[in-house]
Amino acid sequence: MQFKTLASLSILSILFFTGCDSKTDGEQSNKTDTKKEVTVKKDFVLKTTDNLDLNVKIQGDKIIFKDYPEKIILLNFFATWCPPCKAEIPNLVNLQNKYANDLKIVSVLLEQDKSNEIINEFINKYKINYQVTNSDENFALSTGLGEIKSIPTMILIDKDSTIFQKYVGIVPSEMMEIDIKKILEK
């Protein structure tokens, strides 16, 4: 009996701590053998669910949020159907509350055809206290960052706009908090 319980808990924890694939079942890779130069977009305007524009620029190893100068940014790629994405929301809410003066969390929705009304219901249900973006630019940003392949994926950006850490899958808030404190000590 103990073996069955242990095996069940192990399988459950593996499923819980791995991320969700951000591609839908019908989506397939469009790789070709031709060597065409592809221009990757570097400037983005992300539209939040409350109709604010967040101006973002990718420049080398920097992700510059022009609207949040000298702030730590936690860029969170997620989907409303993803269980690990939902599970991490309370941790993100707590981090935003605890580090409100230094940290801005920006969640980037990687779902198509979701109205702001539906996303705002999700925000209210989970008591989200940080910015959530919902636009086609979200996918362009994902591509500009090398295409986010698994969700949740989070990128911690220091006050100088340099990528400090990338997290794939659900991450304990203590780990993120250690990294935030390291940035604040710089």
Rank of each mutant, 00 (worst) to 15 (best):
M1D: 09
Q2S: 14
F3K: 14
F3I: 13
T5F: 11
A7N: 09
S8Q: 14
S8G: 12
L9A: 11
S10M: 12
I11N: 07
I11W: 02
I11V: 15
L12W: 03
L15G: 07
L15K: 07
F16W: 15
F17M: 15
G19K: 11
C20I: 00
D21Y: 09
S22K: 08
K23G: 09
E27F: 08
E27H: 02
Q28N: 13
Q28D: 13
S29P: 03
S29C: 10
N30S: 12
N30Q: 15
K31G: 13
T34W: 04
T34V: 10
T34S: 08
K35P: 03
T39E: 10
V40K: 10
V40L: 11
F44T: 08
L46H: 00
L46N: 03
D50I: 14
N51H: 09
L52M: 13
L54Y: 00
L54H: 04
D61W: 12
K62F: 10
K62M: 08
K62N: 12
K62D: 03
I63V: 10
F65A: 02
F65Y: 10
K66S: 13
K66W: 11
K66N: 10
D67C: 03
D67I: 00
D67R: 06
Y68A: 00
K71Q: 05
K71N: 01
I73V: 14
I73Y: 07
I73P: 01
L74N: 05
L75N: 11
L75G: 12
N76D: 11
F77A: 08
F77M: 12
F77I: 10
A79I: 00
C82S: 07
C82L: 03
C82D: 03
P83Q: 05
K86G: 02
I89K: 08
P90E: 08
P90K: 09
L92M: 08
L92W: 04
V93Q: 07
N94S: 09
L95T: 04
N97K: 13
K98R: 08
K98E: 06
N101C: 01
L103Y: 02
K104P: 02
S107R: 00
S107M: 06
L109E: 05
L109T: 04
E111Q: 14
E111R: 04
Q112P: 03
D113L: 12
N116M: 08
I119F: 02
E121F: 05
I123C: 00
Y126Q: 10
I128M: 06
N129C: 01
N129W: 01
Q131T: 14
Q131F: 15
V132S: 05
S135K: 05
D136G: 15
N138D: 10
N138L: 06
L141V: 02
S142N: 02
T143D: 11
G144C: 05
G146P: 01
E147P: 01
I148V: 14
I148D: 07
K149P: 01
I151R: 02
I151W: 03
I151V: 11
P152H: 05
T153C: 04
M154G: 10
M154P: 04
I155G: 15
L156H: 00
L156A: 04
D158G: 00
K159T: 00
K159S: 01
K159E: 03
T162Q: 11
T162S: 15
F164Y: 09
F164W: 07
V168Q: 12
G169Q: 01
I170Y: 08
P172R: 13
E174V: 13
M176W: 06
M176P: 05
M176I: 09
I178P: 04
D179L: 06
D179C: 07
I183C: 02
